[in-house]
Amino acid sequence: MALSAYFASLSLLKLVKNVPGGIAQGLIWGLMALGVYITFRLLDAADLTVDGSFTLGGAVAVMLILGGWPAWAAVLVAVLAGILAGMCTGLLHVKLGIPIILAGILTQFSLYSINLRIMGMAANKALSVDKFDLLLSSRYIPSAIVTAAIIALALVSFFYWYFGTQQGSAIRCTGSNPNMSRAMGIDIGFMKILGLSISNGIVALSGALMAQYQGFADINMGRGAIVIGLAAVIIGEVLGKALLGKHLNFFGTMAFVVIGGIMYYIVVVVVLWLRLNSNDLKLITAVIVALFLAVPYLRDQKKSSFHRLKVKEGKPNA
């Protein structure tokens, strides 16, 4: 009886009402995932700076807008701040020989203090859309979706061009084969710093947009960003391969990474609609990421001769 009462209490209308908000948030996180894609897939490096640089972007943007800057200029400065954060991780890794995961953790850790200082030692800074002219806000979801989608399209197009240039290709080459890159005269240290800077610039951009969307910057808004970014990257890749298969080019892959962010947030909306405890979201996210990461591996395993022989062993006549 309790179960039927539970289902009766779920209103489909409410779900439909919440989907646009999920799409807007998903688009903004999708941009963040683009940044993660650059390091995780193109540079073949797990960069944990992003948790800090996402908050950094939000903090810088909010404080500058509160200080009277136009929103677009505040976002631009936020991007620069993100680039500096990525550069810091890159320098720690390349110039001081610290393993990249640790370098990212160190930058992220220090950014907690820096972000607090930027926000004037407050853990939370509100930014009212009534008082300031923002690029996007959860108050006006349709226009927020349009704005975020335009930015996403512009960024995907930009990266499609950039990673096809000689410099962008050198970054990809560094991630694909560092030995060969050196033999080709590519300064792989410089390329790593460059890639990390670009990636964190985008992540900070996403943070700056998210702070405006939700109407505040919070010291913890970037916590777990790397996992959400990875979730978006992986969901997007799996989805893209399933839908487009061989026709999935680089532009499509990046577009699907953004779409992966949207898919992730639609799942979040559904989870919240089912009235599961929102504190369990992180657990659910981790399970989703683990599942999507495991699926390609398990599928390959099934095709391997180990598996096939094991199956035959069980049935001697097969």
Binding site: W161, Y162, G164, T165, Q166, Q167, S169, A170, M184, G185
Partner: peptide, 11 residues
């Protein structure tokens, strides 16, 4: 482009 500067031209 071995050993040359890698700029922003399409590769």
């Amino acid at each position: 482009k071995r050993g040359e500067k890698r700029g922003l031209r399409w590769m």
